[in-house]
Design a protein around this nucleic acid. Structure first.
Length: 784
RNA sequence: GCCCGAGUGGCGGAAUUGGUAUACGCGUUCGACUUAAAAUCGAAUGGUGAAAACCAUAUGGGUUCAAGUCCCAUCUCGGGCACCA
């Protein structure tokens, strides 16, 4: 007897797909398109994990579903390859990140192919490929030309022992992750993208997106628009006046002191000989404070500057303090403190015995000018790292930046021997001394000059801020993306991921709006629908991690004999796609049994179950062949189950209820095992199964000689000839009636039948108050 | 602290518009097949109870003919933000 052998079937179909390339996409102007993508992975050395499989399979189910419905689908794939793990590995071992990346991509590709994904493999992209990052640099230059890429002095984490800049995630409890020494903030010139320029549109367009509410709320909070006013305070003694931002200009009569942030630019002018030493010491200490310390220790600290300001409302002379509870990056870096109204100001006033004055409110616009501010800051994009996209800038002898001309792109990453950043705070790119020198035309002097290249690289998020558009024409040598291809394929219809709720998904919206303004994109939002999938945790409910030893390797699940179809279907069945779920190895077996039953129904003529059906009296009618000409009644019964299943699976996929779609297929096959199947059932089953288990379904369809066109249901077949009507007494189920379909709307008839029922009569002996009939719910409620 | 979610059998979960609570799967039990085991197939499976019936969707109220679903309060868990003036 033949058996279901997933590995054999899967190998066969993967070979077929490798040769026939059924998902190679081309623009077909007369066919509706559908573009789907997952958040492209960072190809780590560990290979695919079960979270990738869930993420990719969601996209795959939708891709195949729409392809089977006749849409022209594009489902590309790519790799987000710049980043710290490859660089750290390089520092440790001296292996070039280029080589490690190449190996990891090959492994990822091989594994993704073993899962049978409907990918157009001709569109693979890789952010560290010079063919790709040439255009990342081009994007940077467009932003630079419009003044949206600019330099500014900014405080960075700095490890004084390792003499290097550290990223936020490399600072652990205020200490350097490598040497353990306390880190400090160092003022350095950094590159920024001016995302705040688009703050209003980014905020206002959120409501129009078909995205999960959770993500929309997070983005709104992140942008954090608040409206208020800026109010100028004159400083006694002639120092420049201080402008504060407040959302409550109406409380100005209660402002009894001002507070500026330690980093406040005009701080020096406020100091007196008596206070200078103390204030500067406070400032130095504040700069040393780690984020963690600032978060954990919210006790108010501060120092009096020695200066006073005049409250424009009360004309009172009020002291100016410096305190780290005022943030330099928000508003103007200075506030008016109204301790009677604001909890933080009150706490500060109480700590330092400053006056608290209860106050009447005044007109909001009386003393200030209306002003809107945002929590969102400009996007800091320079990284002092080797393994990133070089910023296409060079500096003349006076330190002025000049863009590398577009015809000299890409600025290639130079080869170096040592990947450790150098002690000037520059990336390892600074070690490529020849590479550093470049001849550029200087407009100011009108001469070609030797300049020095920028050694910072771009934040990886820059590389992923335009990759969805590259998919439209991934090998284009003339442009970042082709206008016709973009017009046809994009914006992306479905984008699926489980991370980057704010950063990546906000940055890509920002770039989209910018390039739309520049005329390069015909839309202002890059992603129509976002699916945000949950994590898959270990069987113990905890996060999977190597150190805990609770990692489930998807390739092990396949190779253990379950196969890719079981793995895919299991991960869709595990629970609602947007919720976290815990791996359950035994449930994987349940899904395997389900697929095995599908296989058996089509291929194993000898299985005794196939020859069974149930007689009207409930007994099993055995030894009957399966696909012969069954009698009419039998066929009608199957027609109704079949149509209901088609409807349920179709609608569930439309709603992303993949778990209940699989459950509906399980119900269907359970029913077929009970009553028997006609050929149309087998074909329908295979077609509906294909998005989840494409190898097995292809094998079934081949055997049945059928295509994979998505089946349609007809409403008229959904109900069988008789329907069950529920009879309630006071809302509680007491009896079930079987009535003819044609009588379902007939209230009198159903009432008559109900009242004739023995069980119901027990309750109606003392009369009936009223009845409620709900034909849609097939329900009659009798109130007694 | 603030803003979102969520709480249903032994377990993961279903219930789409207020209308048969517990679909589907796991686990468990029993049976068939087998010398036996595995695999496969079939049956049962919220609790109490002999049964009738009663009680069950975190807890306590409410609205309704009817509440897992709506309203009010409380508890618990998860996520996000966190001195943003």
């Amino acid at each position: 007897m033949e058996r279901y052998e997933p590995l054999k079937i899967e190998q066969k179909w993967q070979k077929v797909w490798e040769e026939t390339k059924p998902f190679k996409a081309t623009e077909k102007p007369s066919t509706p398109k559908m573009m789907l993508a997952e958040m492209f992975p960072y190809p780590s050395g560990a290979g695919l994990h079960v979270g990738h499989v869930r993420n990719f399979t969601i996209v795959d189910v939708l891709t195949r579903f729409y392809a089977q419905q006749g849409l022209n689908v594009l489902r590309p794939f790519g790799y987000d390859t710049f980043g710290l793990p490859a660089e750290n590995y390089a520092i440790k071992t001296g292996t070039a990140p280029q080589d490690v990346t190449k190996t990891n991509i090959a492994n990822f590709r091989k594994q993704a192919k073993r899962l049978g994904y409907a990918i157009d493999w001709s569109r693979e992209i890789n952010t560290s490929d010079p063919e790709y990052y040439k255009w990342t640099q081009w994007c940077f230059l467009q932003l630079y030309k419009k003044g949206l890429a600019y330099q500014k002095e900014s405080y960075q984490w700095w490890c004084p022992v390792d003499q290097t800049v550290l990223a936020n995630e490399q600072v652990e409890n205020g200490k350097c992750w490598r040497c353990g020494h306390e880190v400090e903030k160092k003022k350095m010139k950094q590159w920024f993208f001016k995302i705040t320029e688009y703050a209003d549109e980014l905020l206002e367009e959120i409501d129009n997106l078909e995205w999960p509410e959770k993500i929309k709320t997070m983005q709104k909070n992140w942008i954090g628009r608040s409206t208020g006013a800026e109010i100028g305070f004159e400083v006694v003694g002639g120092a420049p006046h201080i402008t504060v931002f407040t959302t409550r200009p109406d409380t100005i009569y209660g402002a009894t002191f001002l507070v500026v942030a330690p980093e406040y630019p005009g701080l020096d002018a406020l100091l007196t000989d008596d206070t200078r030493e103390k204030v500067l010491a406070y400032k130095a200490a504040a700069l040393k404070k780690s984020e963690i310390e600032r978060q954990e220790n919210k006790e108010k600290t501060g120092v009096f500057t020695g200066s006073y300001a005049i409250n424009p409302a009360t004309k009172a002379k009020i002291p100016i303090w410096v305190a780290d509870y005022v943030l330099s990056g928000y508003g103007t870096g200075a506030i008016m403190a109204v301790p009677a109204m604001d909890d933080r100001d009150r706490e500060f006033a109480e700590t330092f015995s400053l006056p608290i004055v209860e106050t009447e409110l005044c007109d909001r616009d009386k003393f200030g000018t209306p002003k809107t501010t945002y929590r969102m800051r400009d996007w800091l994009i320079s990284r002092q790292r080797y393994w990133g996209c070089p910023i296409p800038i060079a500096y003349d002898s006076e330190g002025n930046p000049h863009p590398i001309p577009e015809d000299q792109l890409p600025v290639l990453i130079p080869e170096v021997d040592d990947y450790q950043p150098d002690n000037s705070g520059r990336s390892a790119l600074a070690k490529a001394t020849d590479w550093l020198k470049v001849n550029i035309y200087n407009e100011a002097t009108g001469q070609v000059e030797e300049m020095t290249r920028e050694t910072d690289t771009l934040d990886g998020y820059a590389c992923s801020s335009w990759y969805l558009w590259r998919y439209a024409s991934p090998h284009d040598k003339e442009a970042a993306w082709d206008q016709d291809a973009i017009k046809y394929w994009e914006p992306v219809d479905y984008y699926c991921g489980g991370d980057h709720a704010v950063a990546h998904l906000l940055y890509i919206r920002f770039w989209c709006k910018f390039f739309a303004d520049e005329g390069y994109l015909p839309f202002r939002e890059p992603i129509k629908r976002l699916l945000y999938n949950g994590y898959i945790n270990a069987p113990d409910g905890k996060k999977m991690s190597k150190s805990k030893g609770n990692v489930i390797d998807p390739l092990d699940v396949i190779n253990d004999g379950y196969g890719a179809d079981t793995l895919r279907t299991y991960e869709m069945f595990i629970g609602p796609y947007d919720q976290d779920a815990a791996w359950d190895t035994r449930s994987v077996g349940g899904v395997y049994r389900f697929l095995n039953r599908c296989w058996t129904l089509v291929f194993d003529k000898n299985a005794n179950v196939l020859s069974r059906s149930i007689r009207d009296d409930g007994s099993v009618r055995s030894e009957e062949p399966r696909n012969d000409g069954r009698d009419e009644a039998f066929r009608d019964k199957n027609v109704s189950v079949r149509n209901r299943t088609i409807k349920k699976v179709t609608e569930d996929i439309h709603r992303y209820n993949f778990n209940t779609a699989v459950a509906a297929l399980m119900e269907y096959i359970n029913e077929l095992y009970k009553v028997g199947a006609v050929e149309e059932d087998l074909i329908t089953l295979a077609k509906l199964l294909k998005p989840f288990a494409p190898h097995l379904a292809s094998e079934m369809l081949e055997k049945l000689g059928a295509n994979d066109e998505w089946p349609k249901w007809e409403e008229k077949y959904l109900a069988s000839d008789t329907v069950e009507v529920v009879v309630q007494i006071n809302g509680k189920l007491r009896a079930k009636l079987t009535v003819d379909k044609s009588d379902l709307e007939n209230e009198d008839k159903i009432k008559e039948l109900a009242l004739a029922d023995e069980k119901i009569q027990k309750y109606t002996a003392n009369g009936i108050k009223k009845t409620i009939f709900v034909p849609k719910a097939k329900l009659l409620n009798i109130v007694v």
